[in-house]
Amino acid sequence: TEEVEKIVRELQKRGVSQEEIQRILKRNGIDPRDVEHVVRRLR
């Protein structure tokens, strides 16, 4: 989703690792598959 993408991009800008990003998003109830998808697209 748009929202997830924004969050991921923001965290990446701050130098947060992929694993940490995924952990944060999972904690916020976001589907890990969505996270994977977004992270892969932004690489």
Rank of each mutant, 00 (worst) to 15 (best):
Q18W: 15
T1Y: 13
Q12I: 15
I30Y: 14
I21R: 00
I7C: 13
K6G: 05
R33C: 14
R23P: 00
V8P: 00
R9A: 05
V16T: 06
E19F: 11
Q22D: 03
N28H: 13
E5V: 10
T1P: 10
E36V: 05
I21V: 04
I24D: 00
I21S: 00
Q12E: 03
V16E: 04
L42C: 14
V4K: 01
P32D: 07
R41C: 15
E20M: 10
H37G: 09
E10P: 01
Q18G: 09
G29C: 10
L42T: 05
R43P: 08
I7H: 04
L11I: 01
E2Y: 12
R41Q: 07
R33W: 06
R14D: 04
E3V: 10
N28Q: 13
R41W: 05
K26C: 15
L11D: 00
R33H: 09
G29A: 02
E20T: 07
P32M: 05
R43C: 15
R14V: 05
V16R: 07
E10S: 11
L11Y: 05
I24Q: 06
Q18P: 12
E2T: 08
V4L: 15
V8E: 00
R27C: 15
E3P: 05
V16C: 15
I30R: 02
R43H: 13
D34F: 13
Q22M: 15
R41G: 05
K26E: 10
P32H: 03
G15R: 05
K13M: 11
E2I: 10
R23I: 08
Q18F: 15
V16H: 11
I21E: 00
V35G: 01
K6P: 02
D34K: 10
P32Y: 04
I7E: 03
K26P: 00
R40G: 10
G15W: 04
V4Q: 02
R33A: 11
G15S: 03
R41M: 13
V35R: 01
V35W: 12
V38L: 11
T1E: 09
K6C: 15
R23V: 08
V38N: 01
D34Y: 13
G15F: 04
L42K: 04
R41V: 04
Q12Y: 15
R9E: 03
I21N: 00
K13T: 07
V38K: 01
K13G: 07
R14P: 01
R33P: 02
K26Y: 14
E36S: 04
L42V: 09
L25C: 14
R33M: 08
E10N: 08
Q22W: 14
L42R: 07
V38E: 01
V4C: 14
L25S: 00
R14S: 06
V16S: 04
K6Y: 08
H37Q: 13
D31G: 02
S17N: 07
G15I: 02
R9P: 00
Q12R: 11
Q18L: 15
E5D: 05
E19W: 13
L25T: 01
I30F: 14
T1W: 13
S17Q: 05
R27Y: 08
V4E: 01
R33Q: 08
E20H: 06
R27T: 05
R43Q: 14
K6E: 06
K26F: 14
N28K: 14
E3I: 11
R43V: 12
K6R: 12
V4H: 02
R43W: 14
L11N: 00
V16D: 01
R23F: 08
S17D: 08
Q12A: 12
I30P: 01
P32A: 06
E5Q: 04
N28C: 15
G15N: 06
H37V: 12
R9F: 05
E20W: 12
V16A: 09
E19D: 11
L11H: 01
L25Q: 00
E19S: 11
D34P: 01
E20N: 08
R9N: 02
P32S: 05
P32L: 05
G15K: 06
Q22L: 14
Q22G: 09
I24L: 11
E10W: 13
D34I: 15
E20G: 06
E5I: 10
K26A: 12
K26N: 07
E36C: 12
R41Y: 07
E10Y: 13
R33D: 08
I7V: 08
L42D: 03
I24S: 02
Q12K: 08
R23S: 09
T1I: 14
T1F: 13
S17C: 13
N28T: 11
S17E: 04
E2D: 11
R40L: 03
R14M: 10
P32Q: 04
V4W: 06
I21Y: 04
G29L: 03
I24M: 10
L25D: 00
Q22Y: 15
L42S: 05
E5T: 06
E3G: 06
R27P: 01
I21G: 00
V38F: 04
I30M: 08
G29D: 03
G15H: 07
R40S: 09
V38H: 02
R33V: 08
H37M: 14
K26G: 07
P32T: 03
Q22P: 03
E20S: 07
D34W: 13
Q18K: 11
R40M: 03
E36Q: 06
V4F: 05
Q12N: 08
P32E: 07
V8H: 00
V16I: 11
V39N: 03
I21A: 04
K13Y: 07
L11A: 03
I21Q: 01
G29K: 03
I24K: 02
E36N: 03
S17F: 03
S17T: 11
V16Q: 03
S17K: 06
Q18D: 14
R27V: 07
D31T: 04
I24P: 00
V35K: 01
I7S: 03
K13V: 06
V8W: 10
I30W: 13
D34T: 15
I30D: 01
D31I: 02
E36W: 11
H37L: 13
V4Y: 05
G15Y: 04
Q12V: 15
H37K: 13
G29Q: 02
P32G: 04
E2H: 11
E3K: 10
E3C: 15
E5L: 11
T1Q: 09
Q22F: 15
N28P: 03
Q22T: 12
L25K: 00
V8N: 00
L42N: 04
L42Q: 05
I24C: 13
D31K: 04
E5H: 05
R33S: 08
R33K: 12
I30H: 09
R27I: 09
D34L: 15
G15T: 01
V35N: 01
R27M: 12
K13R: 12
L42I: 13
E19L: 11
Q18V: 15
K13F: 08
V35M: 04
V39C: 15
I21W: 09
I7D: 01
V39I: 15
D34C: 15
V35Y: 12
E36F: 04
R41D: 09
E10T: 11
R27L: 11
I30E: 01
R41A: 07
K6N: 06
V4G: 01
G29S: 03
G29P: 02
V8Y: 12
I21H: 00
R23K: 08
I30V: 12
E10I: 12
E19H: 10
R27A: 12
E3D: 10
V4S: 02
R14W: 11
L25M: 07
N28F: 14
E19Y: 12
V16P: 00
K6M: 09
V35E: 01
V16W: 13
H37N: 13
R9T: 04
R41H: 10
R9V: 05
L11M: 10
R27E: 08
S17G: 07
T1D: 08
T1L: 14
Q12P: 00
E10L: 13
V38S: 01
I24W: 11
H37T: 13
I24V: 06
L11R: 00
N28D: 08
K6L: 07
V16Y: 13
K6W: 10
P32I: 06
E3T: 10
I7Y: 10
L25E: 00
E20P: 00
R41K: 12
Q12G: 04
Q22S: 11
R23C: 15
L11K: 00
S17I: 03
K6S: 07
E5Y: 14
E10A: 13
R9W: 06
I30A: 05
H37W: 13
I7K: 05
R40N: 14
V35T: 02
R14E: 06
E20L: 07
E10C: 15
R27K: 09
Q12L: 15
V8I: 12
R40C: 15
L11G: 00
R43E: 14
R40Q: 12
Q12F: 15
E5N: 04
E2G: 09
R23Y: 10
R23L: 11
D34M: 14
V39D: 02
I7F: 10
S17M: 04
R33T: 06
R41P: 02
I24R: 06
L25F: 02
Q22V: 15
V35C: 13
G29F: 03
E20A: 09
Q22K: 14
V38G: 01
T1A: 10
K13N: 08
K6A: 09
S17H: 06
V16N: 04
V8Q: 00
G29R: 02
I21M: 10
H37E: 15
V38D: 01
